[in-house]
C-alpha cells in the first residue's frame, strides 16, 4: 500500500465522524439500511439561528466558561509554576499538583459539592467556573513546571544584569520566550473546559446549560438529529483551535 493511499485512508478516518455528524444533523429521517438519509432538512440549523433551542446561549455559556477558565488557569498556573519550580520543596508541590487527578472529575465534583452548596455557588455560572478552575489550575502548573528550567532562569538573571527590572524581565523575556507553551496550555485548558460534563452537571445542577450539557440532554432524549447538530457545534471551536495551533504555535516552535 502506497504512502498516498495510507494518507488518504487516515484523512478519511479523520473526516468520517465529522461528515457523519454533519449529515445526521441535516437529516429528518435516516434509518438502517439506507446509506444516506431518506429525508433532508435544515430545520435543526435554522431553529438554532432563530433561537429555538437556546443554542446561541449554550454556545455563549461554553465559550465564556472555556475562555475565562483558559485565561485564568494558564495565567495563574504560569506564575505559580514559576515560583514553585524554584522552591526548595519542589517535589512535594509537584506531588500535590497531581492530587486532583487521582479521582475522576465526577467524584472530584461530588467531593467539592458540599463547599459549593455552603457558599451558594451551586447552580451558578461562577460556581462552574470556579470548579473548572480548581481542576485545571494544577494542570497548568504541571504543564509549566519543567518549562521553568535553568536556562530560562539564567535568561531572567541575565536580563537583570543588563539593567532590567523584574517586570521587564517578565514581560520582555519570560512571556515572549514562553509564548508557545502559554498558547498550548491555554488551548488544552480551553478544550478541557469546553468538553467538561462531570463538573458542569454536578456543580451546575443542570442550571448552567453549556453546550456539552445540552448535547447529553439531547442524547438522553434520543433526539439523534439535534444531538448531531449539538455535536457539530461542540466540535467546531476545538477544530478552529487545532488549526490555529498547527498554523501558528507549531510553526513558531519549529523556527
Amino acid at each position: 500500500m502506497g504512502k498516498k493511499t495510507v494518507l488518504a485512508l487516515l484523512i478519511a478516518l479523520f473526516i468520517l465522524p465529522f461528515g457523519y455528524l454533519g449529515t445526521l444533523s441535516l437529516a429528518s429521517e435516516w434509518r438502517f439500511p439506507n446509506l444516506l438519509p431518506v429525508a433532508w432538512t435544515v430545520e435543526h440549523w435554522t431553529s438554532m439561528g432563530s433561537g429555538g433551542g437556546n443554542w446561541a446561549f449554550s454556545a455563549l455559556t461554553s465559550l465564556t466558561l472555556a475562555s475565562t477558565v483558559g485565561v485564568l488557569s494558564t495565567g495563574i498556573g504560569f506564575l505559580t509554576a514559576r515560583y514553585l519550580s524554584a522552591h526548595p520543596k519542589r517535589p512535594l508541590w509537584l506531588l500535590l499538583a497531581y492530587l486532583p487527578y487521582a479521582f475522576s472529575p465526577v467524584i472530584y465534583a461530588h467531593c467539592l459539592k458540599f463547599f459549593f452548596n455552603v457558599s451558594d455557588l451551586s447552580g451558578t455560572l461562577s460556581g462552574v467556573l470556579l470548579a473548572q478552575f480548581i481542576l485545571t489550575y494544577p494542570f497548568a502548573i504541571l504543564l509549566f513546571f519543567n518549562h521553568f528550567d535553568q536556562s530560562l532562569r539564567a535568561m531572567e538573571d541575565l536580563t537583570y544584569t543588563l539593567g532590567g527590572t523584574p517586570r521587564e524581565a517578565f514581560w520582555r523575556v519570560l512571556v515572549p520566550v514562553s509564548q508557545s507553551a502559554l498558547l498550548v496550555c491555554f488551548f488544552q485548558i480551553f478544550l478541557i473546559s469546553w468538553f467538561d460534563y462531570g463538573l458542569s452537571s454536578v456543580i451546575g445542577l443542570g442550571q448552567v446549560r453549556t453546550l456539552t450539557i445540552a448535547l447529553y440532554q439531547y442524547i438522553g432524549e434520543a433526539n439523534q438529529y439535534v444531538a448531531a447538530l449539538a455535536s457539530c457545534l461542540v466540535c467546531l471551536p476545538p477544530l478552529v483551535l487545532l488549526w490555529l495551533n498547527q498554523r501558528f504555535v507549531f510553526r513558531q516552535s519549529t523556527i
Partner: peptide, 10 residues
C-alpha cells in the same frame, strides 16, 4: 543586580 552596572555572561 540591575543597579550594579555588572553584567554576568554565562
Amino acid at each position: 543586580p540591575q543597579q550594579r552596572g555588572i553584567v554576568y555572561l554565562y
